[in-house]
Simulated scan of single mutants.
Amino acid sequence: MTPTPPPDTPASAQPIGVFDSGVGGLSVLAELRQALPNEDFLYLADTAHVPYGSRSDEEIRDLTARAVAELCRRGVKAVVVACNTASAFSLTHLRARHALPIIGLVPAVKPAVKATKSGVVGVLATPGTGRGTLLRDVIREFAEPAGVRVLTAVSTALVPLVEAGKADSEEARATLREVLAPVAGAGADQLVLGCTHYPFLRASIEAEFGSTFTLVDSGAAVARHTRNVLAERGLLHTEAREGRVTYLVTGDPQAARPVFAALLSQPARSAPAHTGPESGHSETQLSGHAPRIEPAHT
């Protein structure tokens, strides 16, 4: 079991907690490690309860609260809720309960609206994110004043496919054809990946739709924001070192290991809206070795 840092450990030397319902948050973790290479991370996947998208609002809040409490018990200095659905329902409640920084995800509608040439933007989301307030708020704040039409495509099948290691499969492509064809037909030229699992579907989306969409996600922006928050609070790790990651799952570690290994061996490519000088990279390797995965109880 991952030891809790000793009581005299400086706050800046404590790890950053990263939480997702499953493996999707690995796409955000890759961006965090690129932006914060000196930091240690505890990545907690609630694989015993994934997916969250079809669960009730109260279930999502309860599961997220339990997971964040477990990360806090293990001595993290901040938590990144690397799950769009959990962020949509839980951030206010978490911030009221914990004094440490709680950083969540907001669907990347703003950069998509800024980049669109056709005036139509698609959002690929889970049912939970689709009915949450965060997506509605960013559409109201950024898309409506710009006169940009936003079309939401929702699927319950895509997250389980990624969790099963089938992100680049005929089954995934068939599902994407079904849910995204209306968005493409309406002329969308930007597609917001409104779930952290969805960057792992990039190859399947591109295989089906070619260059129809520019794919946009929140990972790099969240990593930059996390760095800024830690800097403002004096919580950045000051030692020049290579940070480490500990992986935790609430389900069966043996079952999770092959999927983690497959996804961690992939290059994580930032969406074009977040690459270039601002992010400092266009591609970063998630990991070069088989992950050590430990059980967690929430």
Rank of each mutant, 00 (worst) to 15 (best):
R177P: 11
F213I: 12
T196H: 02
V154C: 04
T214L: 05
I205K: 01
A207F: 02
V150P: 03
T214S: 09
A174N: 12
L215S: 03
S204E: 05
E208S: 08
E171T: 13
A188M: 15
L201Q: 04
A153G: 07
C195K: 01
Y198C: 02
A174C: 07
A181D: 12
P160M: 06
V183G: 06
E206I: 08
V179A: 08
T214C: 05
T214Q: 12
L191V: 08
D189L: 13
V159F: 04
V162W: 03
L151S: 09
Y198M: 02
E170V: 15
A164P: 03
G219E: 12
T175G: 12
P182Y: 03
L158H: 00
S204I: 12
S204W: 01
G185S: 13
S155R: 01
A188V: 15
A207C: 07
V162Q: 03
L161N: 05
V183F: 03
G187W: 15
I205S: 00
E206H: 05
R173C: 09
A153C: 06
E208M: 07
D217K: 09
I205C: 00
K166P: 06
S211W: 13
G185E: 15
I205M: 02
V154W: 06
P199L: 02
F213K: 10
E206D: 08
G165K: 10
G194P: 02
S169G: 08
A153S: 08
T212L: 05
L151K: 11
A164Q: 15
F209P: 01
A153M: 10
F200D: 02
S218W: 11
G219F: 09
Q190G: 11
T152I: 14
D217A: 04
